[in-house]
Computed example of a mutant assay.
Amino acid sequence: MKIEKTIDFINKQNPKSRIDLIKIEDIKSKQTKDHSSYQFHILKFYALLFVTDGNGDHFIDFNSYSCEKGTVLFIGNGQVHRFSETSNLKGFLLPFHDDAFNFLNIKKLTNILQLFNNELITPKIQLDNDTFLGLKNKFEQIKKEYLAVNDTHSNQIIAAELYTIFSILQRQSNTNHDINTKSQHLIKFLAFQDLLIEHIFNTSKVQDYAKWLSISGKTLNYIIKSITKKQAKTYINEYYLLRIKRVLMNRELSIKECAFQTGFEDLSNFHNFFKHHIKLTPEQFRRKYS
């Protein structure tokens, strides 16, 4: 059984495509007993949310982000998100898999996925009106190619529009992103993140990750602190707690199974650890967010 229950997407216009474009209004109007956009769920893909009208909150990894016309949200692969029932947002959701740009032959644009790394930039940016209008036109052109044209030239046109969209968003991303992506330590940090995703339920020791990266624990701590402003142990513990929260969203697992699958052999230790850090029991957290 997969301990973190994820959802994926299929492009109904082109099932082989690794990218899609969906109107936010359509997502919110299609609620089923098996899936509701108002409930937290983990994405098995990346998603760009572009708001063209309305206002309301959107939740990413249990944090709330206020949205309005011109808001762009970056939702990463593996993150938890949901729409708010009280929001009246309109716009577009652009879901894609990490190989989508190879599918569209976009080779010039690098570091696209860094936009979706919350340690490098915040998940939200707010566009000025001129930039908003420019991006809105690009999204409308992509929608036209998908729904109205969809001929042999469509992929090339969509690729060109996406190239422009992501280039503009990279320019608009905050100052912290500019500093971090130029950091000499970025490659090691990204490798560390990959290791953390794979091994967090097996070890939270700084030395283990340092060994796998062939560096000292002191160097790893320096790298993490230079990018996140956090000590390595603090960063690892916070990520560990986030992953536990995501696992708790899988209601197919009992609390005891969640504890075991996330590295705890004793249920009481799991309860104590979680409540100490989150100030809620695992059961209370699950009831609050699922």
Rank of each mutant, 00 (worst) to 15 (best):
M1S: 14
I3C: 07
E4M: 13
D8I: 12
I10F: 02
N11W: 01
Q13E: 15
P15F: 00
S17N: 10
R18Y: 04
D20M: 11
D20R: 09
I22T: 10
I22C: 09
I24M: 08
D26R: 12
K33A: 13
D34M: 12
S36M: 00
Y38L: 01
Y38G: 01
H41P: 07
L43M: 06
F45W: 06
L48I: 01
F50M: 08
V51D: 07
T52V: 12
G54H: 10
G56K: 09
F62A: 04
Y65R: 05
K69I: 05
G70W: 03
T71M: 02
I75Y: 01
N77G: 02
N77I: 03
G78R: 02
Q79F: 01
R82D: 00
S84F: 04
T86Q: 10
S87H: 02
N88C: 03
G91R: 01
G91I: 04
G91L: 02
F92C: 06
H97W: 07
D98F: 11
A100T: 02
F103P: 08
L104M: 03
I106C: 07
I106Y: 05
L109H: 08
L109W: 01
L113M: 06
Q114I: 05
Q114M: 13
F116K: 00
N117D: 14
E119H: 06
T122S: 10
P123C: 00
I125C: 00
Q126Y: 04
D128P: 06
N129A: 08
N129D: 14
N129Y: 12
T131R: 09
L133T: 05
G134R: 15
N137S: 15
F139L: 06
E140S: 10
Q141F: 11
K144E: 13
Y146N: 09
D151N: 15
N155D: 15
I157W: 07
A160Y: 09
E161G: 07
Y163N: 12
F166Q: 04
I168A: 06
L169T: 02
L169W: 06
Q170A: 08
R171L: 14
Q172T: 04
Q172I: 00
Q172N: 04
N174M: 09
I179R: 09
T181R: 12
T181A: 03
K182F: 07
S183K: 04
Q184T: 08
H185P: 08
K188F: 12
F189M: 03
D194F: 05
I200Q: 03
F201V: 10
T203V: 12
D208F: 15
Y209M: 06
Y209G: 09
L213N: 05
S214L: 12
G217C: 04
L220A: 00
N221E: 07
Y222N: 13
I223F: 01
I223V: 13
I224E: 03
S226M: 11
K229D: 14
K229G: 04
K230M: 15
Q231E: 14
Y235D: 11
N237P: 01
E238N: 15
Y239L: 10
R243Q: 14
R243N: 14
I244G: 04
N250K: 01
R251D: 14
E252I: 00
L253C: 00
Q261E: 09
G263D: 04
E265T: 15
N272D: 09
F273C: 04
F273R: 01
K275I: 05
K275T: 08
I278F: 00
K279I: 00
T281L: 05
Q284F: 05
S290L: 12
